[in-house]
Amino acid sequence: MITIKEVARHAGVSMSTVSYVLSGKRSISEETKRRVEQSIVALGYHPNAGARALASNRSQVLGLVVPLRSDQNMPVIMQFVSSIVASARGYDYDVLLLTKEAGPGEAHRVTARSMADAVIMMDVESADPRVPELRAVDAPVVLIGMPDDHEGLSCVDLDFTTAGRQMAAHLADRGHRSIALIGSHPSVYERGTSYAARLLAGFQGETTRRNLPASVHSCAPGYDSVAACLDEVLHPDRGTTGLVVHNEAILGQLLLELRRRSLDVPGDLSVITLCPDDLARDLPVPLTSIAVPAQELGVIAVEMVMTRLAHDHAPEVRLLQPRLTDRGSTAAL
């Protein structure tokens, strides 16, 4: 491994001069700076994390708080994580993954101890108990999600309220007169997870506005749970003809159970979902869907962090508008 001493020898300068060129802490003549930079390139020198931290008073690390829970769909979570990691590397940052359930104080702990320069937080609740602490953290914090009380916080997310409204409207506009929302694991609602609550609010707001009969059902993964949920959803008294599914983990099981019951999609039952595009496209029956833009949200979250690190930038909230792709799984009645 090439060292700073070898760079200094190659450029004919002191090691402190090389450090000043790297950190920008002192003015160095353009000729000397150019010589040092040429030596860095010629030798293939890469400052290690410790040297960068000492030079800049920064760790070059982002903390990513994403508690891993049994009710989460890990493939979707990992899409967010991989997007954040890849985007951070573009800024020469590493990512410290914090997977334990993080209560108040976690963001302050990792930034105050110089473990991370900034924090990105996922798994945001509507009434998130971390909000007061996050406002007091002396480092940039960005939420992927939006608590009800988000004043003074930087947040980025899909506009789940609009997504719920659009999916209900999509079925209503095709003549469906009784629809159902199959939502996330019951614990997601019990915990007050923000995205689930906002989608539910949008769905119920639209069905109420249209005076459209609609039922709501939470569903745990597993064939028995899915079968029991469908027994409720498809009870003859309901007359359900269209499903909005906000639960990526059960989509494959749901389609298999419908097939077992000899129900055709969309001939007998229309289905629209919210999930990543690749999942909706590659199911046994490709589903009309609103995309979960995990890649885009991860990139924007990192960009927002970097903007706040570089400038005294005011907090902002960015909600991405839903993008609906029709794959033919919803029929007109």
Rank of each mutant, 00 (worst) to 15 (best):
V13D: 11
G24P: 04
E30Q: 14
K33H: 05
V36N: 04
V41E: 13
V41K: 14
A42E: 10
G44F: 10
N48K: 00
A53Q: 12
V76T: 07
L97C: 06
E101P: 01
G105E: 08
A116T: 08
D128N: 05
A136F: 02
V141I: 06
D148Q: 12
H150V: 06
C155K: 00
L158G: 06
R165M: 04
H170T: 09
H176Y: 05
G183L: 09
S184W: 06
S184I: 03
S187H: 13
S194H: 10
S194W: 06
R198A: 08
L200R: 15
A201K: 15
R209Q: 11
R209I: 03
G222I: 14
S225Y: 13
A228M: 13
L230G: 09
E232D: 13
G239H: 12
T241R: 01
G242W: 02
V245P: 03
G252A: 05
L254Y: 03
P266E: 08
P266C: 02
I272D: 01
T273Q: 01
D278Y: 12
L279D: 01
P284G: 09
P284L: 09
L287V: 11
I290W: 02
V292W: 07
A294R: 14
L297G: 04
R308G: 01
V317L: 05
L320D: 00
G328P: 15
T330C: 15
